[in-house]
Design a binder for these strands. Structure first.
Length: 491
RNA sequence: CGGGGUGUAGCGUAGCCUGGUAUCGCGCCACAUUUGGGAUGUGGAGGUCGUAGGUUCGAAUCCUGCCACCCCGACCA
């Protein structure tokens, strides 16, 4: 394949699309708005799943699976929920096809469903309808369930990983006896997401709460983690919702308390999606391609043997390369030995850089003689010749250092792009010329928020958690405010 | 759904204005020489020109409808 080069600085969208394609992560499918996640992209997603799943289990959750289809009547039981999703639902109306007289395959009109089925855009309704039967007593609580699934939201405009008609995600749905417990769960899962984002994806995130406008349809509070991409736009990377008793009431989910009274349960839901792949790409990658943090990379180290002409030398180099592979594997490091003989070393170097492999070890006859290898790191592109002695420990440390460096670089970038402003001129100037988050006072009204969005396209990404209180004036209206909130243009 | 653009081999493209059955590069296959940063040479395979109509002796090229994708809006994880 010809490698098409697109620079980040010239056209960020083109760079992104090109990278997704060149690095073999995903492609558009024949189905409008949908994507095919290719094996390499899926391997990264599987790693994300594994790390998230581990954290879900550690916090007491279990996995389960609920149907893809939701009867329309379930869906419409929670008023604000249906309002929020109505415009982007795929609806199944028939269950059979037939061959028409002209030989064409057509929908069999006699196979019309009595009640239409909605392809889930999220599963609250079908799950809460099920929970009604599962929850009878305080002894059934808390109910802590997660589901890995695909969902469909019929968006007008799509973009690989960031917004596709169908996407993969996990959605946690929990039920609790008290509001306090449910709120604690909501916050706990936000922390789980933040930990995952920062320690695995190496993407620093702002933890915060959404304003009423940006809240999930049907939630009382929506907490979120917000990342900052290299083009200065914010990306919502995960949400955790406190749903109050809205769904319990809509689906009549009550439990008998210790005092033998009947109470509605308290709910949460939380989710992250394949959008995280987009965050990963846009946060770290460069003009050479993807940059994967070692904790996430499906292949952490690639060994490229440099094979000479002589058979005997080839064997020596390969034997040494295999020995290194074995030693690294014993350390739990994921290593690929790229022994393809039909491509040149230079091609392999470039290809593995494109795919973001954190560490590359090159070994040739010269190294075999000197008992050395050439070790190159993807994040800084530094190369150094190292002695083979104790190589596995050196590589292990290097992987840790790379993880740390990638995170630190993103954190520095993020922190340099939070601009505190105090009036409208500074506010618009920061949005237009500086990019990133703008920290500003806001009078707390939806009206002002919407007005600002109309005027600048910037939205309130979140009200940061543990936000210091500070008296000030709203940048738009001048009305009093007690804290700053984070604005940004977002994906 | 509005505005703009694109659609030609697996990928990237030329040709379109001014109609005559498709150009080039990469990749692929074979052989040889190569291998410490995207190898070279020689030979070869690969195309319903997005799709359906129309105009024409003749359409990748002109006209119309449709579809898909990209960019900008509205919408959004």
């Amino acid at each position: 394949m010809e490698i098409k080069k697109v620079k980040r600085s010239e056209d960020y969208s083109a760079w992104y699309n090109n990278l997704v394609k060149q690095a073999d992560l995903a492609e558009h499918s024949a189905v409008k708005g949908c994507m095919v996640i290719k094996p390499y992209g899926y391997a990264i997603w599987e790693k994300m799943q594994a790390e998230l799943d581990k954290r879900f289990k550690e916090t007491g959750h279990q996995n389960a699976y609920f149907p893809l289809f939701i009867p329309k009547s379930f869906f419409s039981k929670e008023a604000s929920h249906v309002d929020g999703f109505a415009k982007e639902c795929a609806v199944v109306t028939h269950y059979r096809l037939k061959t028409a007289e002209n030989g064409e395959i057509v929908v069999d009109e006699t196979a019309k469903l009595e009640e239409e089925l909605i392809v889930r855009p999220t599963s609250e309704t079908i799950i809460w309808n099920t929970y009604r039967d599962w929850i009878k007593s305080h002894r059934d609580l808390p109910l802590l369930i997660n589901q890995w699934a695909n969902v469909v939201r019929w968006e007008m405009r799509t973009r690989l990983f960031l917004r596709t008609t169908e996407f993969l995600w996990q959605e946690g749905h929990t039920a609790h006896a008290t509001a306090e417990e449910a709120i604690a769960e909501t916050k706990q899962m936000l922390e789980v997401y933040a930990d995952f984002a920062e320690n695995i994806l190496a993407v620093p995130v702002m933890k915060g709460m959404k304003t009423a406008n940006e809240r999930f349809a049907g939630a009382l509070d929506t907490y979120c983690i917000e990342g900052l991409m290299q083009d200065g736009k914010a990306l919502q990377m995960g949400t955790s919702h406190f749903l109050g008793q809205n769904f319990a009431k809509a689906f009549d989910v009550k439990f008998a308390t210790k005092e033998n009274t009947q109470e509605y349960v308290w709910a949460t839901s939380w989710g992250v999606s394949t959008r995280l792949m987009g965050a990963l790409i846009m946060c770290h990658s460069d003009d050479e391609g993807l940059v994967l943090p070692p904790n996430l990379a499906p292949i952490q180290v690639v060994i490229v043997p440099i094979l000479g002409k002589k058979e005997e030398e080839k064997e020596q180099v390969l034997a040494k390369a295999k020995a290194i592979q074995q030693a690294l594997r014993k350390k739990g490091i994921s290593v690929k030995l790229d022994d393809r003989d039909h491509t040149s070393p230079g091609f392999k170097f470039a290809e593995h850089e494109l795919k973001g492999v954190p560490v590359r070890i090159a070994i040739g006859m010269r190294d075999v003689q000197n008992e050395t290898v050439e070790v190159a790191r993807r994040d800084t592109k530094e190369k150094q010749v190292m002695s083979m002695v104790d190589l596995e420990n050196k590589v292990e440390h290097l992987l840790t250092a790379i993880q740390q460096n990638i995170f630190q670089k993103a954190l520095d970038y993020r922190d340099e792009h939070i601009h505190a402003v105090n009036n409208w001129d500074e506010f618009t100037d920061a949005l237009e010329n500086k990019t990133g988050f703008v920290s500003a006072h806001w009078d707390g009204t939806s009206e002002t928020e919407i007005k600002i969005k109309e005027m600048t396209k910037a939205t309130i990404r979140c009200i940061p958690l543990n936000n210091p209180l500070e008296n000030g004036k709203c940048v738009l209206t001048g009305n009093p405010s007690t804290q700053r909130v984070l604005f940004a243009k977002a994906y």
